[in-house]
Amino acid sequence: MNQTDFFKCLSDPTRLDILKLVLAKQNVCVCEFTERLGLSQPKISRHLALLRNLSILLDQRKGQWVYYRLNPHLPTWATDILNIIAQQNDGLNQPENSSISVCCE
């Protein structure tokens, strides 16, 4: 991953919101993204595929559900940027505001 692709990826509001949720919760299911962001599953999946293709996120299948987490082997500069994003208080990345229904349990 190069810096240009990383910042292009962050420039999309949906992908940025997805990353904020992952930063707040670590393992996030697709159904949680759709519920929290109010977007369709195909649209979320398209954004997740880009984040996964750039190796920003890793995925893990558990039964019929796919969970996403931050790649622990990101370059230091990328991790530093994501840590700054995680510190922003916009409500999306706050775990106490994550009233997710148990759709994937």
Results as ranks from 00 to 15, higher is better:
G63C: 03
D90I: 03
C9I: 06
F6L: 14
W77V: 08
R61Q: 15
K8L: 11
I85C: 04
Q60L: 13
V30S: 14
V66P: 04
T4L: 00
L57Q: 01
V22M: 06
N53W: 02
N2V: 00
D17I: 00
N97E: 09
I56F: 04
Q64C: 09
W65L: 10
S45A: 06
R46F: 10
V66K: 12
K43V: 07
K8C: 05
A86D: 10
A86V: 02
S11N: 15
R52W: 06
N93L: 01
V22I: 10
D80Y: 06
W77N: 07
A78C: 12
L92M: 13
P75W: 06
E105L: 15
P95E: 05
L37H: 01
D12E: 15
L23N: 02
R15P: 08
Q87T: 09
V66H: 08
K20V: 02
Q88C: 02
L39R: 09
Y67W: 10
C103Y: 08
Y67L: 11
L54P: 05
A24C: 00
C104G: 09
T76C: 09
I44N: 05
D17T: 02
N2L: 00
L92Q: 11
N53F: 04
K25A: 13
L19Q: 11
P42Q: 05
A78F: 13
S40E: 15
S40Q: 15
R52M: 04
R15Q: 12
N83A: 08
P95Q: 08
L74C: 02
F6K: 14
S45E: 13
N27T: 00
D5I: 08
R61C: 07
W77H: 08
A86L: 07
T34N: 01
L50W: 06
E32R: 12
W65E: 15
W77R: 09
Y67K: 09
I81L: 08
T79E: 10
Q26L: 00
Q88A: 05
L57W: 01
R61S: 13
L16G: 02
L54H: 10
Q3I: 12
P95A: 11
S98G: 04
V102P: 03
N97K: 11
G38K: 08
T34I: 01
N97A: 09
F33Y: 09
N97Q: 10
V102R: 13
Q87N: 14
L58Y: 04
R69A: 12
E96P: 07
Q26Y: 02
Q87S: 15
V22H: 08
E96T: 13
Q64K: 15
H47N: 13
L39S: 00
T79G: 05
Q94N: 15
G38V: 03
S101N: 04
Q3A: 14
